[in-house]
Design a protein around this nucleic acid. Structure first.
Lengths: 231, 231
DNA sequence: AAGTTGTTATGATAATTATCATAATGTAAT
DNA sequence: ATTACATTATGATAATTATCATAACAACTT
């Protein structure tokens, strides 16, 4: 972890309009005065499940995974979040401890606000509260939808789905460096690590992908989409 | 469907304190004046996915399922909701159409408010908005958690899980009438109808359950809990 | 009463996926 | 450089789950 109280200018913050469009400039500067930016290197834990929630946190840069440890000690990955998605999203308004862990899977920067402060603003500024609710609803809806989608697919379809997710939603490119290990893919889509590796190898042999370690290039996009949908 | 503009007294409504504890009595009577109660018999559709959201609806009595049709035409069940959970919960603040269908699986009563009205109140009354957010967050968190839990289990564990869910969370009793068919159980936990039936038969042969059609009695609770957790 | 339809039920078989074993490669620490 | 450890990789086998076939039964229609 690289805690770092870097100064950043809220005037130029691209997240401002998204989160605080219904907050006055005065209120905004109140919030920003006490904000803290923290950097996390790839692999470091940002929040740990079970910890008390004291902060209101969002992701400014990077990529994170949300996960939870099952009673058998195995991790399950819920979803991935990129900037403009919240980090301390879920539990904040319904629990006083984090239900999930958040881990940086790329070097990430979070902006941390005082939770009581944010709650106070939400309580007095209903438009802001509605904005939060709307973003919250969109994010959780996506997770639920994604889980349903993965659930109905076989191994090949699941792997195709994940690759298309990173390609389209995260990187916007058919070539990318996979930010997670094969084991983490398995933890996300509910299959064994061996079968993730095997299926990726199959896709390579079928000339759907080119693979060099974590570097992936989707060669036959149509076929991959077809496998994701019907394979 | 049995639409029915029954008069009900909001003064006595047990949901009032839950939903509207931060709303003035004047506002409350404004809301209640234009409320509509509707009854739905078991099996009837309350809202259909894709339809525009015009109403703010909550479940006053009964039991419903939330489902979505996959691209292959098969239904998937997201979750079940009982009173005190919202019905038109999810999509309301993030979408203008329903993402999921809601169907009565027991005779149910919904109370319907004008959506714009509710939104207006939420925008001007931040405590109310926060209440909504908190309930929303709790409900979605439960769905996500439940899906994770089911995902990591085998068939027997999943069936045990569902039976314990209905026993503990819905009926509060080890004997109950299953409100859904074997096929619907399959749609909820992601397995085939045949295997649901087979697994229930196994539990009967193992003297864990007594089964007469949809009437279920859990005979060996400890064993069922053990199967749910480790089986 | 006969027919249609959907649910529950069970068995045989095929397909899918997990487990176990082994090894090559890569990465970090000493 | 060497050890230690995790990741990637592949094959053989076992376990799990789905598919297909068939049938009993109930609910409902005609």
């Amino acid at each position: 972890m690289i805690p770092d109280n870097t100064k950043c200018s809220c005037e130029q913050c691209e997240l401002k309009t998204l989160f605080f469009s219904h907050v006055t400039l005065d209120t905004l500067s109140d919030i920003c005065e006490i904000k803290i930016e923290k950097n996390f290197s790839k692999g470091n834990i940002i929040v740990q499940e079970g910890e008390p929630i004291r902060e209101f946190m969002y992701l400014k840069d990077g990529l994170v995974k949300l996960s939870k440890m099952a009673s058998d000690g195995k991790d399950q990955i819920l979803s991935f979040s990129k900037p403009f998605d919240f980090v301390s999203l879920f539990s904040v308004f319904s629990s006083d401890t984090y239900n999930y862990s958040v881990t940086a899977i790329e070097d990430s920067t979070t902006c941390i606000l005082d939770l009581d402060n944010v709650k106070r603003i939400a309580q007095s500024n209903a438009m802001f509260a509605m904005d939060l609710m709307s973003r919250f609803s969109t994010a959780t809806d996506f997770i639920i939808q994604e889980n349903l989608d993965i659930k109905r697919k076989h191994l090949r379809g699941r792997i195709a789905h994940v690759l298309l997710y990173f390609s389209k939603r995260i990187y916007g490119c058919t070539s990318f460096e996979l930010p997670i290990s094969r084991r983490e893919i398995a933890e996300y889509i509910g299959m064994t690590t061996e079968n993730v590796i095997r299926t990726l190898s199959e896709f390579r042999k079928d000339k759907i992908l080119k693979i060099y370690g974590k570097d992936i290039a989707i060669v036959d996009l149509k076929r991959l989409q077809n496998i994701s949908e019907h394979g």
